[in-house]
Amino acid sequence: MFHIYCPHCAEYREEEEFHAAGQAHIPRPLDPEACSDKEWGEYMFFRKNPRGIHHELWVHAAGCRKFFNMTRNTQTYEIKEVYKIGEQPSVVAE
């Protein structure tokens, strides 16, 4: 079970308070109508799904209800950093 630091609450909390919400940094296309079916499908469904360093979205569902980003190793499950929405990760995959 993960021990997650919520950047909004500024506290470590148990994973049970959080939900993973998938890959982070996938902006909704600003002009959806201009997207082809392929582009729209890729926005909705296609994911990096990396083995190793991954940037993902989490929400402190049973806490402050706020979303934040997490850089985590999907192999070792080490959490490298958490950062707020709108911020960029400092740890990235090679």
């Binding site: 919400a21 929400v59 209800r65 706020k66 979303f67 929405i85």
Partner: peptide
């Protein structure tokens, strides 16, 4: 639904 509203507000349209 609440989480749906929140995710769009917080991540797309802050």
């Amino acid at each position: 639904v609440l989480e749906w509203l929140e995710i769009y507000h917080q991540t797309e349209w802050p």
